[in-house]
């Protein structure tokens, strides 16, 4: 059992000729919260999507809990994983999207129970019981049977978090979870995430919420132009940034 949950070494990612990640090297330890900051187009969301293989990396090594993402290594050779095996690994990694991506044709409860029943083959009654507990935990005990269209953005995002947690993930990825929300609704989602961090969940969070990063993150990473400009505890990166680029960015968003 290693203490490292996510390990990236020299990760490169290109879209055609456009190089989005130019050698990212990072480590996220078990139980840690890492916040990725940076201007749009800096590659932070792309990096996050690489972690659960929604994007394929072009070079470098990326592993989650000691296993390569998307590949298997044997006799010094890499073998691409079958879709089935990629799906199996994704079960252990929860993801929350900027645009929620709840399933609109299902109620909140059905959104949460779908994957545990269909993917893990769990029993319906137990799964529904647990789903209710999760929805209670994110403060939606009165919305079990609501369709996403009748929920506010903040409520939808909290259902999305419950949906991801229902798979009992060992790692949670958040892709700008509050960027599509009205300012008034940002707080309720951040509260849920703060609780989750306190419970010991390993989290990688792409965000523009500097206050949240300062309070919750163990490590803050500032990215720009596809490279890590600066990484360290929030007090250093946010409190006393060494690089001019970080200082300029923080001056604008604070």
């Amino acid at each position: 059992m290693t203490d490292v949950m996510v390990s990236a070494e020299g990760v490169h990612k290109r879209f055609g000729h456009n190089e989005v990640l130019k050698g990212i090297t990072l480590t996220v330890n078990r139980g840690q919260v890492m916040c990725l900051l940076g201007p749009s187009g800096s590659g932070k969301s792309t990096f996050l999507r690489c972690i659960n293989h929604l994007e394929k990396i072009n070079s470098g090594r990326l592993s989650v809990d000691g296993e390569l993402v998307g590949y298997r290594e044997a006799n010094g050779k890499l073998y691409e994983l079958h879709e089935r095996d990629v799906a199996r690994k994704r079960q252990e990694i929860g993801m929350v999207f900027q645009s929620f991506n709840l399933f609109p044709h299902m109620t909140a409860l059905q959104n949460v129970t779908l994957a545990p029943i269909q993917v893990l083959g769990r029993r319906r009654d137990e799964t529904e019981q647990r789903a209710r507990e999760l929805l209670d935990r994110v403060g939606l005990s009165d919305k079990y049977n609501a369709h996403p269209v009748s929920l506010s953005g903040g409520q939808q995002q909290r259902v999305a978090i419950a949906r991801a947690l229902a798979m009992d993930p060992k790692l949670m990825l958040f892709d700008e979870p509050t960027s599509a929300l009205d300012p008034e609704l940002v707080g309720e989602v951040l509260d849920v995430m703060r609780d989750l961090a306190r419970s010991g969940m390993t989290m990688v969070v792409v965000t523009h919420e500097i206050g949240f990063a300062r309070e919750v993150a163990d490590t803050v990473v500032f990215m720009d132009g596809g490279v890590v400009v600066e990484a360290g505890p929030p007090a250093e990166v946010l409190g006393a940034p060494k690089h001019e680029r970080t200082r300029a960015f923080l001056a604008k968003v604070l």
Binding site: R88, R90, N101, Q118, V119, M167
Partner: peptide
């Protein structure tokens, strides 16, 4: 985004097609 959300929950291609 619907397909991506379903994939991130570990659902397979056929499951995503049929359920989502």
């Amino acid at each position: 985004g619907q397909t991506e959300a379903a994939a991130s929950l570990g659902m397979g291609r056929m499951q995503i097609m049929r359920r989502i």
